[in-house]
Amino acid sequence: MDRTVRIRELTVKPGEKTNSWVKIGELADGSPLRVPLIIVNGKEPGPRIVVVACAHGDEVIGTEAIKTIARELTPDKIKGTFIGIPILNAVAFLTGTRVDVLETPMGWNDMSKMYSTAKPDGSVTERAASFLRDEVIPQVEYYIDLHSSAVGSLNGPRAIVAGLYAKVDPVVRRRMEELAIGCGFDVIYRPESESYEGMYFRPIPFFEERGTAKIVLETGAAPTLADLDTLRNGIMGCLVEIGMVEGKPKKSRDITYCGRLSAVRANRGGIFRPYVEIGKTVKAGDKIGEITDVFDNIVEEVVSPASGIVVKVATSAIAYTGIRLAVLAIPDNSRL
């Protein structure tokens, strides 16, 4: 089997490591829009994986995690092939925003929602998404998609895998399980339906249904490096679990499997004071915070709508009707 990695004009043979760029387009002044690639092709055969960050341009924790991990990986230390893409959404990264703000109208171009429909000759966002889909994914077995919370909130670590409703081959499902358990996160979210209450984006199982074992690792807060060590250790745990690098897997001793999320939203406006932290278990009806007005009167006692684990808390104290103040992961007592 030919183990050479070929991506456009780039060729990386077994035993080689390279840092390179792939041009996606140009800005108005003619300067190139490029996607960086870090490829480590091991001397020995083994699993093939791509780790991707910055599909949302302000979620830079994944960028830093890939950089620091790739620094340690060399062809003689790994089995198989590691492909790191520290920045996939180039324009959004340059502007420090979730999506490409140069493309209008905004909102339609969330990269995480367009992998199945992205056109190679479409918008810049579509071209980057189709590059990953058409030119990188066919060369790997595993795919780790790195995310953090959006601006204004903090995520606790969780692995996200395709729900059982997805038509995933049993072999692919087993590989997804390897990654999800190997990362060592305490919460594994496997949606029980295609409704993703409590999330900004829907992890549509496009790649999984086509044979690639994909998981999402999510922690921290955009645009910061909060919880970087947790994410980095999670990725390394995945690499150990699939046999790419040597080491003892850092598996969680107390994994909670969750089938749905529940958003806690404000009914009133004012200043939000949270009383819970990431990882805390709460019961339905527990007080998790309060909203006060400008005269320090309590206008709302925020209570938990369900029993679950706190996986997201607002870091912005500004509250208004409908804003998410927290997100709970609801245990389902199942296994992958």
Rank of each mutant, 00 (worst) to 15 (best):
G163T: 01
T74I: 05
P157C: 05
D145R: 04
E197W: 10
Y165R: 12
A166P: 02
V140H: 11
P157Q: 11
G198Y: 05
G163S: 06
R158C: 11
R127Y: 01
G182D: 02
V140N: 08
P75R: 11
A65M: 07
D100E: 08
E103N: 13
A90W: 00
I69E: 01
V60K: 13
F131R: 04
V171G: 06
E141Q: 13
G198W: 12
E103V: 15
S116A: 03
S149A: 15
L102Y: 06
C183N: 13
K79G: 06
G107F: 08
E64P: 00
A65R: 05
V172N: 06
M199Y: 12
E135F: 02
I144C: 03
G96M: 01
V161F: 02
F93N: 10
G184M: 11
F82G: 03
A150D: 14
T97I: 02
Y142V: 01
G107K: 08
V60T: 14
S195F: 13
S148D: 06
S123A: 00
I181G: 08
I61E: 12
K79M: 07
P75G: 10
G198H: 07
N89M: 03
P138C: 00
V187D: 01
I87F: 09
E135H: 07
R98H: 07
C183W: 08
A70C: 05
A159F: 01
Q139M: 14
R71D: 14
T63G: 00
V172E: 05
G156V: 01
Y189D: 10
M176R: 05
A70N: 02
M106R: 15
G182F: 04
M114L: 14
A118I: 09
D76G: 13
E103F: 08
D110W: 13
L88H: 11
G84M: 06
K79N: 15
I69D: 08
T74S: 14
R133D: 05
D121N: 04
A128F: 06
V161Q: 00
D145P: 03
T125D: 11
E197H: 12
S195H: 12
V136H: 05
K77D: 09
T97S: 14
K113N: 09
Q139S: 07
D121E: 14
P157W: 11
A65F: 09
P75T: 03
L179Y: 09
L179E: 10
T63F: 03
A70G: 09
V136S: 06
E141G: 08
Y200S: 13
V101Y: 01
A70S: 15
I181V: 15
D186L: 12
Y189W: 15
A129I: 12
S123K: 10
E126V: 01
D169S: 09
P170G: 10
R175P: 01
E103L: 13
I83L: 08
S148I: 08
I137F: 03
V140P: 12
I69N: 04
R71I: 04
D186K: 12
S112K: 10
A150I: 13
I61V: 15
E59T: 11
A90Y: 04
G80S: 13
C183D: 11
A162Y: 02
F82Q: 13
V91Q: 12
